[in-house]
């Protein structure tokens, strides 16, 4: 095992070769795309499914069937469909984010207290205004928690995906450092970077929870 100074040396080594920034950017790029695409598709779909009880009954078996399949089990299929490269990794991250976000959105809608919806209807809101002025603000706090947890999952999966499906990124760095001459200083340097960036992502998401009009659900009860 490398000493802490060995790891620092590894980080310096990576920086001087320009690999540190390159790999971090490559990993973040995949996470951003996979996570964003999943959020764009899963949240509206989940909100719709949650709003209509029948839709939930129809979709639930399919969701529960697909959900427990680890995103890593999809790696061979991802490579078959998208080849070795960014698309495969993005696809895997998309999958890993899609179901948690879908379930978060479904539950968020179902947990809206009926008084808010009744009050919204009472004041004569059109269906569109009811969505925008009651449904959306009522679910946002739960969605933020879901997004934060899911981003953590995405960050876990990108490392695994990069070990197999691509030739760059922090996951690739770890596998490559071991394969190309047992450079354990670089392996641990990679782990440290993954941890650090995970921490930063979480801090970023938590700052969303501090927005005043989102904060109500955390301060009440």
């Amino acid at each position: 095992m490398p000493s802490p100074w060995g790891v620092v040396g590894g980080l310096v080594d990576l920086t001087s070769h320009g690999l540190l920034v390159k790999y971090v950017v490559a990993s973040l790029f995949r996470v951003t795309w996979g996570f964003t695409l999943a959020a764009i598709l899963a949240i509206p779909l989940g909100l719709t499914i949650g709003w209509y009880r029948r839709a939930e009954m129809a979709f639930n078996p399919l969701i529960q069937f697909l959900r427990p399949i680890s995103p890593l089990a999809w790696i061979p299929i991802a490579i078959l469909w998208f080849g070795v490269g960014d698309l495969s990794a993005i696809f895997l991250i998309f999958l890993s984010c899609f179901f948690p976000l879908l379930l978060t959105a479904i539950n968020a809608v179902r947990n809206i207290p009926a008084v808010y919806i009744n009050a919204g209807r009472n004041f004569g809101l059109s269906p569109g205004a009811l969505v925008y002025r009651v449904l959306y603000p009522a679910v946002v706090p739960q969605l933020i928690v879901g997004l934060r947890i899911t981003l953590g999952i995405a960050w876990l999966v990108v490392v695994a995906a990069e070990m197999i499906a691509v030739n760059s990124g922090l996951g690739f760095l770890i596998v490559d450092a071991r394969n190309a001459g047992n450079r354990y200083d670089l392996v641990v340097a990679g782990m440290v970077l993954i941890g650090l960036i995970g921490l930063l992502l979480d801090i970023g998401m938590r700052s969303l929870e501090k927005v005043k009009s989102f904060r109500w659900s955390y301060s009440e009860e």
Partner: peptide, 13 residues
Amino acid sequence: IFVFQERGVFPWL
């Protein structure tokens, strides 16, 4: 207008 117990105010406003 229906007035619920105080739970009816919108906490995000």
